[in-house]
């Protein structure tokens, strides 16, 4: 049993890295996702195409491949063009890891945000515009605040997914939860305790978060039915 406890404690050392990467990535993803959602809603064909291509490329490729390209391929390419670029100058390999997670999340968030905006009755936009608000003002003051409430559960679910997906970052040298377990396994060969420990470390992050989401959804459902 001691060895299982050890495996768990070792995996837990990766929690700060996993949490920090996930948090920065979800903020980045939400901001970029909002931008993409707004692009896909504009009248500009060019912006629509850019948003569509972005989402297709990100959703059509595994995050691991994106991480490898970002961490290894991008510096190599830029250096072959004569640039002195390296991730180490920007703070190390955790930087491309956060960027990839954020960009990946943005593709999913943009779909969530877009459906959230579309779920708002079009009378809201008309009422706002009839008061003389510009389109941007109406989005900012009327539509987006309402859409946020609609998408909050989906947003939190995306956060849970993102926490689990950061496990691929060990491949590019980020020592998060899974990598802690792998490194310990590679020297101790305690394979099963190592991966059980890793699984439990993820669970203490994801299960409470899922419970909070469920609680919020129940609260909203109660309020709607009371209204």
């Amino acid at each position: 049993m001691d060895v299982y406890l050890k495996g768990f404690l070792i995996a837990c050392k990766g929690i700060p890295t996993t949490v920090v990467v996930s948090l920065i990535a979800i903020v980045l993803g939400a901001a970029l996702g909002l931008l993409l959602a707004l692009c896909s809603q504009t009248k500009s064909k060019i912006l629509q195409v850019i948003a569509k291509v972005y989402v297709d490329v990100i959703r059509g490729t595994p995050m691991l491949v994106q991480a490898l390209i970002m961490a290894y391929g991008v510096p190599w390419l830029l250096q072959s063009w004569g640039s002195a670029f390296k991730w180490d100058n920007l703070g190390g390999l955790v930087v491309p890891a956060v960027i990839v997670c954020g960009c990946n999340s943005a593709a999913y968030m943009s779909e969530v945000i877009r459906s959230g905006i579309q779920a708002i009755d079009k009378g809201q936009m008309e009422a706002a515009r009839s008061l003389g608000m510009t389109h941007g003002m109406a989005m900012r003051l009327i539509i987006i605040p309402q859409a946020v409430r609609v998408i909050l559960p989906a947003f939190a679910n995306e956060f849970v997914t993102l926490i689990k997906e950061t496990s691929v970052l060990g491949y590019v040298g980020v020592v998060e939860i899974l990598r802690r377990g792998q490194l310990w396994n590679s020297s101790s060969f305690e394979t099963f305790p190592a991966y059980i420990g890793v699984a439990l470390a993820y669970m203490i992050l994801t299960i409470p978060l899922s419970k909070i989401i469920n609680g919020y959804e129940r609260k909203v459902a109660r309020r709607e039915s009371a209204a």
Partner: peptide
């Protein structure tokens, strides 16, 4: 991967 990281200057 290690060699590439070295050549990339990371």
């Amino acid at each position: 991967d290690c060699y590439l990281q070295m050549q990339n200057g990371e």
